[in-house]
Amino acid sequence: MGAPLYQLKAEFFKTLGHPARIRVLELLSERECAVAEMLPEVGIEASHLSQQLAVLRRSNLVIARREGSTVYYRLTSPEVAELLRVARTILSGVISDQAELLTGLRAEPERPARG
């Protein structure tokens, strides 16, 4: 018997739990990219980018193809791009709620402390 689904989901989200990996997936959500194209966009050293791409490959989130000396990456599934869009929507709502709360707090008059 394999691992429970919730454990597999946790491992999946751990894979997504690195800013460079998220940025790579965002770039690949737009189109297939060569490693050299990703470097300035991700903002990490080439060796670190290679490590992050290896993690994404092992998790079957991206696939690579070689054309001459250039390696291109693409998402294995359009659902990965959809997941990133859903995460953005969720975060937008959370940030909006927090902004409304902050605005409300700032609008309340300060009351002297009782003591």
Results as ranks from 00 to 15, higher is better:
2 G>Q: 13
3 A>L: 15
3 A>N: 15
4 P>K: 10
5 L>D: 08
6 Y>L: 15
7 Q>D: 14
9 K>D: 15
10 A>G: 04
10 A>H: 05
17 G>R: 14
18 H>A: 05
18 H>T: 00
19 P>Y: 05
19 P>Q: 13
20 A>D: 08
22 I>Y: 07
25 L>C: 05
26 E>K: 11
28 L>M: 01
30 E>W: 08
30 E>Q: 09
30 E>H: 04
32 E>M: 07
39 L>H: 06
44 I>A: 00
44 I>S: 02
44 I>V: 15
45 E>V: 12
48 H>G: 06
50 S>N: 12
52 Q>A: 00
52 Q>F: 00
54 A>T: 14
54 A>K: 13
55 V>D: 00
58 R>H: 08
58 R>N: 09
60 N>S: 13
63 I>M: 12
64 A>C: 07
67 E>I: 15
72 Y>A: 11
73 Y>S: 06
75 L>P: 00
76 T>Y: 00
79 E>V: 09
80 V>Y: 00
81 A>D: 01
82 E>Y: 11
87 A>L: 14
88 R>A: 13
89 T>V: 13
90 I>N: 03
91 L>E: 07
93 G>L: 04
94 V>W: 12
96 S>Y: 06
97 D>M: 12
97 D>R: 10
97 D>G: 06
98 Q>T: 08
98 Q>N: 06
100 E>P: 00
104 G>K: 06
104 G>R: 15
107 A>E: 09
109 P>T: 08
112 P>I: 02
113 A>W: 11
115 G>S: 15
